[in-house]
Design a protein around this nucleic acid. Structure first.
Lengths: 298, 298
DNA sequence: TGATATTATAATATATTTTTATATACCAGT
DNA sequence: ACTGGTATATAAAAATATATTATAATATCA
């Protein structure tokens, strides 16, 4: 029995749909299909029934779902118990990050990581992806999380976060229905943007160009140097900003901002963990393991 | 994460030894070696430490062991919960078995199976392996458990039980030290045997011949037609009998008989689940699944 | 009915797992 | 210290399992 299959199963039940579950667990749809068949065969029961397109769990499926959730949680608990004896590491670890991960994704993780290895001195440098990557090549950093995949042969990269840009605006702005806005609607609004050269801004401009829109059609009423500044301005009703969902979380969760996906634009982007291919310290390996286990990318 | 790895881990801890654990879970020793490495790597901890040849669990290993046992039990419980909704089958199932499985291995399993499918009428015929196999070929039986692998192309076979012959004798007989007796010692004793043609007897005679002993050297003082009769005679101190460990379990567990492995003889034998290759009923498939899940062979 | 959404199947590629064969390390007894 | 026995590790090959892409099948919904 493979715990991954069980995890997939839970996602299928929650998504109510094989295809969507496949996305969430980062598999192809046929892989999910195959896993569910294997699981059902292995357990000797039917797990799903289909009423037209509606996917329903059978009685057995419902039982398994309830059990599987607890079961997976229990396994997490086992892993957690092991954390306590995982060897305490000492020394230093120099991280780099571009702004979105550096400001919004990594801080909380670094806190957790620090509690696991209190003796370990962790330093994080935040800068543009290019700055960070060159520091990595110079050996000034051990590893980094940046917004693109460097093509340098000396570096190795893997996706660790998946981010999405969303439109944000004051809650009384009245723009979105069902957390969605069309591209045309967006372009009709007064926009708040990061200053030229920001990676976030580039993602938006590229996505527009990809769909045949001219980035210059945006009615930019203000250019600001940080996400934080953008969010503050948007919260004050100045206009609409397009920012990382993670960056906006503080504001959207507290209700200071409303958010919406932009329909018809591919505003997803990945953040890559990048390391040099040379020998890696135990601390570095531990941090990588920790990041991957944190499961922010599936 | 693979639950099988966890199961192997538990066996390793309990066996205190990779090689013995490998036997118990029916894997090769390198496979166990590999699994333990993979597990340790996956969890990011050392699981074992080695003081010379003595295998010790590390602190992490001890924690994992405690958790893993519960965890595997919980999984069994999940499977059990699913049993309750597994579709009740109706109809008939005609089983055959040679004497050892028919008398000692299958009865308890049939009781369990019956409680799962109360509507299903199960009939078991007990006879010599040859009789059973020919009934199978005639279609008078659906499936059977016998002591050898038939070579007929119409039949498919797989090992479901592993059995071992052991020497048994009255507890005050004073034959064995540490549950072991040498071949020479055995041959020096007055022996109780099954009548000519018994499969059990054949295993013993073949094992003797294999090692260069003449089966006629056995000092057979009585030949009896059933294991039960043999055990009763041995319990009364008449002599030593060589019988299936499973058959002797009643007597050895209650202390009415002592038992010992015969050193230097290969007295292990398999029992095979045999089925015709033609279409199988749902009941038949369910029973096979049940048998395999019962895990009497690993 | 045709367009769309969803799942299954087939062919294929990749990764994982197992086995066999062989090498290495430790221990015990001489 | 040598030697035979025992216990693990490693390497290469074979067998399985799992994944992906492309395509077909099936059911809904407009």
């Amino acid at each position: 029995m493979n715990l991954n299959f069980l995890k997939t199963f839970v996602h299928v039940v929650e998504a109510g749909n094989f295809s969507r579950a496949a996305e969430r667990v980062h598999l192809s749809q046929p892989a999910v299909s195959m896993q569910m068949q294997a699981l059902a065969q292995d357990l000797g029961v039917e797990l799903f029934r289909r009423r037209g397109h509606k996917l329903e769990t059978t009685e057995a499926g419902a039982i398994l779902y309830a059990q599987a959730r607890r079961f997976l949680q229990d396994w997490q608990a086992v892993l957690h118990k092991l954390e306590s004896v995982r060897q305490r590491l000492q020394g230093r670890l120099a991280l780099g990050a571009s702004t979105t991960p550096g400001d919004y994704l990594l801080p909380q993780l670094l806190c957790q990581f620090h509690s696991l290895h209190p003796e370990l001195e962790v330093r994080m440098e935040v800068g543009s992806s290019e700055e960070i990557v060159s520091a990595l090549l110079d050996g000034r950093l051990d590893l980094a999380v940046v917004g693109y995949q460097p093509q340098d042969d000396a570096l190795e990269a893997q996706v660790v976060f998946e981010d999405q840009l969303v439109a944000v605006f004051a809650p009384d702005y009245g723009l979105a229905r069902q957390n969605k806005v069309g591209v045309e609607d967006l372009l009709a609004q007064p926009l708040l943007q990061r200053t030229q050269g920001s990676a976030t801004r580039q993602v938006l401009e590229r996505a527009l160009a990809e769909r045949g829109y001219d980035p210059d059609d945006m009615k930019i009423i203000m250019e600001l140097g940080s996400s934080r500044a953008l969010l503050e301005a948007a919260a004050r009703g100045l206009g609409v900003a397009v920012v990382s969902k993670a960056a906006a979380a503080d504001y959207t969760d507290s209700g200071r901002l409303a958010w919406a996906c932009v329909e018809g634009l591919e505003l997803r982007r990945n953040f890559w963990l990048v390391q040099s291919r040379r020998l890696r310290s135990a601390a570095q390996q531990a941090f990588v393991q920790f990041l991957l286990r944190s499961d922010l990318r599936g």
